[in-house]
Write a protein that binds this DNA or RNA. Structure first.
Length: 395
DNA sequence: GTAGCAATAT
DNA sequence: GATATTGCTA
């Protein structure tokens, strides 16, 4: 949800906000089939707020909010997009992820520490509050953008995406960061809103690049800088896919509209869809036979849990009935949408990828128990981060 | 203008 | 090798 809405909450007061939510729900109820998830989410939001109201009324803060933030934020309202810069320059998180010895400036470290504190142990409530707001965005912006604000962002980029509140964070040119970073970064990392950061980015862009050769500059201007799909964004993508009946029937434009992400282009969605299709089709098409006979039963990722396709497939067969399958996958991972005609299976290789990325997440949670065998993760081990959207319906 | 695929860049 | 962007075609 946009921060403006959050502000509204405070202005309105709780009960007013609940009222507003209920009105919203009424509107949504007009289109129960089109907006099943929204209905669900708004309902949950109302409930949560009511609980807050009755319970910890004195502290209307982000504790309760954070619990439902993902639900409420992920589908309500247009989203200001923010891309994660995966370039090396970019983020302290890169260091965090790869434990790189590549020391950036000290400022990065100090900043990093600060964020890490708020992220890892949610003890500091003040931090928590601010992080909550940050965590709701879809495009992962450069977490270090406060200082990186002075770094290069192509002016062209800003012109292209010049919509208000739609400033993307382009990736830096010189990335040494693996794409996997995106997966990590996408887990609700703290980041700035795109607008402020991006707007301040403009200043030094040209000057810093002028030092370099002009050839490269031209190239940069010609070619759009790479952007990364955050987890939240991908989640939206999947949700949109579901509502549209799967990757096969959905079109980029439809998806884009459903995702309701400000600044997201058709091309980007198209590209993502293409990749998604590649990922989801390849296993089933090429290895359909072998997949069946494989001793290792293919698993699919549902939420943070690997489940058997049968279990998985049973859930999402209805696309618009409101029985939404909660497909949540780390960014870069293409959890098959259940509405695909063949329940997509994951080959060993594919699955290994899933596994690895999950392991990485575990690693960051100091929870390396996913070694080897495929098993469903105990919800307890990964409850807080990105499984929040799964809490409403069990499978 | 849009979607899909392939080539190319990162 | 994976992923995002761009170009081409229908």
């Amino acid at each position: 949800m946009s921060s403006t809405l959050t502000m509204q909450r405070f202005k309105m007061g709780f009960s007013d906000y609940i009222q507003a939510l209920e009105q919203e729900r009424l509107k949504i109820q007009v289109f129960p089939k089109e907006l099943p998830l929204s209905l669900e989410l708004v309902t949950q939001a109302i409930e949560t707020c009511r609980q807050q109201l009755s319970g910890t009324t004195t502290e209307y803060n982000l504790n309760g909010q954070s619990e439902c933030s993902e639900q409420t934020t992920s589908t309500e309202g247009p989203v200001l997009e923010e891309f994660i810069p995966i370039k090396k320059r970019a983020s302290p998180y890169c260091e965090q992820v790869y434990d790189d010895d590549d020391e950036e400036e000290d400022e990065h470290h100090s900043h990093h520490k600060q964020q890490k504190i708020s992220m890892d142990d949610n003890k500091n409530s003040d931090k928590k509050k601010s992080d909550w707001l940050r965590s709701v965005q879809l495009w992962n912006s450069d977490p270090s953008s406060e200082e990186d604000a002075t770094r290069k962002v192509s002016v062209l980029e800003l012109k292209r995406n010049g919509s208000v509140g739609g400033a993307f964070h382009p990736f830096q040119k010189d990335d040494r960061v693996n794409n996997k970073t995106c997966e990590f970064l996408s887990k609700g990392q703290p980041s700035l809103t795109g607008v402020a950061a991006a707007s301040s980015n403009v200043a030094t862009t040209v000057t810093s690049n002028n030092a370099g050769n002009t050839k490269r500059e031209d190239k940069e201007e010609k070619r759009k800088q790479r952007r990364c799909w955050s987890q939240e964004l991908h989640k939206r993508f999947l949700q949109a896919l579901q509502q549209l009946g799967g990757a096969d029937s959905a079109t980029p434009k439809q998806i884009r509209e459903l995702m309701n992400v400000d600044g997201l282009t058709n091309d980007e969605v198209k590209s993502h869809l293409q990749k998604y299709r590649l990922h989801t089709r390849r296993p089933s098409s090429t290895n359909n036979e072998s997949a069946k006979s494989q001793t290792a039963t293919p698993f699919v990722l549902v939420g943070n849990i690997f489940v058997q396709p049968t279990e998985y497939g049973g859930v999402g067969s209805s696309t618009t009935s409101g029985e939404m399958t909660k497909v949540v996958a780390p960014s870069g991972i293409y959890a098959p949408v259940a509405t695909h005609p063949p329940v997509t299976t994951i080959k060993k290789l594919e699955f290994k990828k899933f596994e690895n990325s999950i392991s990485e997440e575990r690693g960051n949670n100091n929870n390396n128990n996913s070694e080897g065998a495929v098993h469903s993760n105990s919800p307890a081990s990964s409850s807080s981060t990105h499984t929040t959207t799964n809490n409403s319906r069990g499978f």
